[in-house]
Nucleic acid binder design. Structure first.
Lengths: 233, 233
DNA sequence: AATTGGTTTTTTGCATTCATTACACAATAT
DNA sequence: ATATTGTGTAATGAATGCAAAAAACCAATT
């Protein structure tokens, strides 16, 4: 994961001679399109007109096309040669498979986190957990989602595996537009909260297999909830 | 993974109206560079001169640059803006993390495969296993590697999760150049073969947790073997 | 001899231009 | 009326051209 400073520069970590580098235009476009897609400004299935989008972003088609190729590699857009580029619209099967894969990554994150988490990281997760409980009691769904996302993200960070983190973030971007179609019923929400309590207990005792199993099940239930609400295609 | 027909066309599966499409030039370049990198024609750390490579491939810089962005998204090359593109040279930590992640994917492949494998698929794996044993007895290391790779690939296919398969193939490409630095000792080779026997037994009885655990351990041992032979940086 | 300063050359980044493909719509034939 | 063919238009694909950045080279100086 590249970490950008606020002046738009980034510290190269992989190359041998450490180099300061300005973010290239096409990289900025990738970031911008990431946002446009995950925020829903570009909706799944929507056609992307290169000229039009290039004008909107005030760039030429060349760097835009380079950015679209990157997004296609991440499966956020789908390119049909000589036909057009579309915001990826996942099929039911793809949603199933992606959540299922995510469940394995979550399990693995939980297992590694129990091995490698620091006291400070655990404190942060505990606080996020408490905050999430508060949002739940206040029935503040958006805040709940945010805290929930933060907990999973912190656990993933605590796993201290950058390759895992990359894939995790990438899949999260793909699934982000779908996240809303869950926890619609009070009962399921309550159940999700209870599962999180168990996850915290497992994390406190560094019980990796327990936490892993819980996080896997948590995701598979989310998968089923999302697919249950899925009418299209 | 896209399956190409022999005339270079591909059947679009995701888009709503089924469309025949010729592979675009930049996609062909991606495939070509995949090969050049995994076959070692382009070595880790090597600089990629756009003009020179474009001339070598008899294309212009535009589609080549698009291809390089895709490869960068897959981490096969590393791009430093205004500086240059290099074949990615993984650090020790990156190798560690990637193998570790791979071990989780292998475990998951094994678990799912036990749930979903067909009789025909099992037969194919059994045959590949027998072939591998033969190569081992004949001390034919290249053929052994090939059969070994084929077994893991078939198990991954049998898991019937396309998202898992994509990531698996991508990580495999990244790790491919490192594969040689293992099984140098007769004892370790013998041990790897024994592990494969256990994996076959678990697969025959559809014991997912056993197969998953075996495949995870198998990969973690491979990780340690590769890192043990790793001198650089 | 090493280092600094400046000029030349190379390479990357991006915009523009041209070519090719596909789609839309109309005209014609069956 | 429907199917089919043909033409115009708009989109994508790729090559070229130009500007900016960086590296290489060389000379001058300490």
């Amino acid at each position: 994961m590249q970490t950008f400073n606020d002046d738009g520069t980034t510290l190269e970590t992989a190359a041998r001679p450490m180099r300061i580098q300005r973010a290239a235009l096409h990289d900025k476009i990738v970031e911008r399109l990431h946002d446009l897609i995950t925020e829903g400004d570009l909706k799944p299935g929507e056609r992307i007109n290169e000229r039009e989008l290039a004008d909107r972003l005030a760039v030429s088609r060349t760097p835009l096309r380079e950015a679209l190729r990157v997004l296609a590699a991440e499966k956020l857009v789908t390119i049909s040669p000589n036909y057009g580029t579309f915001v990826t619209r996942m099929t039911r099967q793809e949603i199933h498979d992606t959540f299922e894969l995510m469940s394995a990554l979550e399990r693995f994150s939980g297992e590694l986190a129990c091995l490698r988490i620091t006291a400070g990281e655990l404190t942060a997760i505990r606080e996020a957990h408490e905050a999430m409980l508060g949002h739940w009691q206040r029935h503040d769904l958006p805040a709940y989602y945010h805290a929930n996302q933060r907990i999973h993200d912190l656990i993933n960070r605590a796993a201290r595996n950058d390759a895992l983190r990359q894939i995790y973030l990438s899949l999260n971007r793909r699934l982000h537009p779908l996240r809303l179609s869950s926890n619609r019923s009070e009962a399921k929400w309550r159940r999700a909260v209870e599962e999180h309590r168990e996850m915290m207990a497992a994390l406190e005792t560094r019980d990796g297999s327990a936490l892993g199993a819980l996080m896997e099940r948590h995701l598979l239930e989310k998968r089923d909830a999302v697919l249950a609400d899925w009418t299209d295609d």
